[in-house]
Design a protein around this nucleic acid. Structure first.
Length: 600
RNA sequence: GCACCCAUAGCUCAGCUGGAUAGAGUGUCGCCCUCCGAAGGCGAAGGUCGUAGGUUCGAAUCCUACUGGGUGCGCCA
């Protein structure tokens, strides 16, 4: 038997694409096109191959892969698509890896690959392990993903949860695609809301000292500040009682925000989220960074004094009056209005630190900067993009991802959140009820910009409908069959599987699963390019479906069962495939921050 | 009033830098355990991709207008 590595045509694959079958075949197509040019069958002038793609066909009946080369090149080459396609087919058929090539439809070239190509891929997956599918697209580049960034005025709730999961999975995805990723949290500890926090905490402090707290409207009423009040009592005794705000505000604000951030960090830890950098808004105020930034912007001519038109369509009777303010020229960079940076009392608007912060991120030299906001902050996208457009050169990729709302359900019934009624669902509540793995996976079973229904009962259901379970079940089955094979006395060690005779994987049901594995590196690239980690979750569901399908075929076709009693060589080949499936599932779940299951 | 997001099978949703006869799950109907985990699988039926135009070899995908739903709109972050 030929070892798997030598079953291929000896022509080497390009190094940077050695694991992606689609780019391998694409380069094969490009080689063929180049050969056609050399032979005079295709013009050289004005012909570029950038738009040539090799993709899985929508319908498997069309083959394993399809290329649009003939259609894309027809116009610049001034040739008929079919003529190019037919010449291309002739060239491609010379390669051992291509068993069939035919022209179809308007000029597609459909390809069928030799089984040996797929069989060898199993070996590639096992050899690469968790690295199979890692991409070079982000190699040598840096990315900054800012997410959560909840105000430090209370514990995280379910809305933050989705942003946290999405942002973290996106960061994991970018890392898998080769980027050096910084996970960052912007701490809004510098504005009026932390003064409100301090006042609210002060009331709890009074409460701890035996006084009835006066939680007026506008203060934070949550019980979570009671421990803060107690901590303040421990620290200050009754020395701050009945003192004017000026004597305690700064101190209490500092202590309260620190305690809230500790709580937020521990909430995030429950979810498995660990930030690399927490950037403090307050530090921007304290260090003069805002003034410095604004000075620079003035130098660039991006700030001016002016008056904004009144907002339209709001309540007609409001106390709006024209006022001259210091404005940022964001309309020059795609925003709808220029944004004020200074309030009438001379203080900075919230926009000023945003401006300085994003300028800072740009200056730190990231190749990719991504902000993850809740959908209720959709109105800020244009102004943020204006900042980066004004301050960064065009090489910086800046993207803002919005996460839509999460609607909670319990047994199919909508679950209304209300702070007053005490049915306020925190992130901690969710994790404690369903666990971090389920929470994370479910949060990624929708596109980020689609609303998500989260049913506390359904997410724990063990059925086909529940993708968390379904994917976990697949990896559990692999683990289970591995145990069984080992108990049967078969050698299922990594070393044995690495040497397995993969040529025995010749059934179309097996090749179909391998073809799905072949899509993995390509999918990772697409997901990373579009900043859409949900694609990973959907892919895993598809891979699991193909695997379960193969598994069940074994019910009718005994030769498809993974364990072939008394035939170690065949068992090893089949188990190599099962292992390859579990390797990719583990890698995918790893990106999403979910643990694969060994048993259920 | 303006801006952004969304509209795909009865329901919940995928759909790649624009590709061929638009896919899953669920629900309905019919099958498959002496058999590696049936917590599963196979098959059938189900669509004017919100509407109307445009761009082109080709549009669910890009552009324009409209309809319907969500979010937001100076001195709050």
């Amino acid at each position: 038997m030929t070892p798997p590595g030598q079953m291929l045509n000896p022509r080497p694959f390009p190094k940077d694409a050695a694991m992606n079958l689609f780019t391998d075949i694409r380069s094969l197509v490009l080689d063929a096109l180049t050969a056609m040019q050399a032979a005079g069958a295709l013009p050289t002038e004005g012909i570029g191959f950038d738009n040539v793609t090799v993709e899985p066909p929508r319908d498997a009946a069309h083959g394993d892969m399809a290329t649009n080369a003939a259609m894309v090149l027809a116009k610049p080459a001034k040739m008929k698509p079919r003529d190019i396609a037919e010449a291309l087919v002739a060239h491609l058929l010379e390669d051992d890896r291509i068993t069939e090539a035919e022209v179809a439809g308007p000029g597609f070239v459909n390809l069928r690959l030799a089984p040996s190509v797929y069989q060898a891929l199993v070996g590639t997956v096992l050899a690469a392990g968790p690295d199979y599918g890692k991409s070079a697209v982000g190699q040598g580049k840096t990315a900054n993903v800012e997410y959560v960034s909840a105000n430090p005025t209370g514990p995280l709730h379910v809305g933050h949860c989705r942003g946290a999961v999405f942002g973290d999975a996106l960061a994991g995805l970018m890392a898998y695609a080769g980027y050096d990723v910084t996970r960052e949290y912007w701490v809004n500890d510098g504005g009026a809301q932390v003064d409100v926090l301090a006042r609210s905490a002060y009331e709890r402090y009074r409460e701890a000292n035996g006084q009835a707290p006066k939680i007026e409207a506008g203060l934070y009423p949550g019980d979570y500040l009671i421990p803060v009040g107690e901590a303040l009592k421990e620290r200050f005794g009754d020395s701050l009682m009945d003192k004017p705000e000026s004597e305690w505000l700064v101190q209490i604000r500092e202590i309260a925000t620190t305690m809230m951030m500790e709580e937020i960090r521990s909430d995030l830890a429950l979810l498995g989220v660990k930030m690399d950098v927490f950037t403090s808004e307050k530090s921007y105020y304290d260090s003069g960074k805002i003034e410095k930034t604004l000075e620079e912007l003035k130098g660039l001519g991006l700030l001016y004094n002016g008056t904004l038109p009144p907002p339209k369509g709001k309540a007609p009777d409001e106390d709006w009056e024209p006022r001259e303010q210091l404005l940022f020229k964001s309309t020059d960079y795609g925003d709808d209005v220029d944004r004020p940076v200074q309030k009438s009392d001379g203080g900075w608007t919230y926009f000023a630190p945003d401006l300085a912060y994003h300028y800072d991120k740009v200056k730190r030299g990231f190749d990719v900067i991504i902000d993850v906001f809740g959908a209720d902050h959709g109105g800020y996208v244009k102004r943020m993009k204006a900042i980066v457009a004004a301050l960064a050169d065009e090489k910086v990729v800046f993207d803002i991802k919005l996460t839509q709302l999460v609607k909670l359900f319990k047994n199919g019934e909508p679950f209304k959140m209300s702070k007053r009624a005490g049915t306020f669902i925190t992130l901690r509540d969710v994790i404690e009820q369903v666990g971090p793995d389920v929470t994370r996976f479910v949060m990624l079973t929708r596109r980020n910009d689609a609303p998500l229904d989260f049913d506390f009962d359904k997410v724990l259901e063990q059925s086909r409908e529940n993708p968390v379970f379904y994917v976990q079940y697949a990896s559990a089955r692999v683990a289970s069959v591995m145990r069984k094979a080992t108990e049967a006395g078969l050698d299922m060690s990594d070393a044995a599987l690495a040497k397995a005779d993969l040529g025995r994987l010749d059934h179309e049901a097996e090749l179909k699963v391998i073809a799905k594995l072949a899509e993995w590196p390509r999918l990772v690239e697409i997901a990373a390019r579009t900043h859409e980690p949900h694609r990973i979750a959907f892919y895993l569901n598809e891979l699991a479906a193909d695997f379960h399908g193969l598994w069940n075929r074994g019910n009718e076709v005994p030769s498809l069962r993974f364990v072939q009693e008394g035939d170690e060589a065949t068992s090893q080949a089949k188990m190599a495939l099962a292992r390859a499936v579990s390797v990719v599932i583990s890698a995918g779940l790893g990106i999403l921050g979910v643990e694969p299951a060994q048993e259920m």
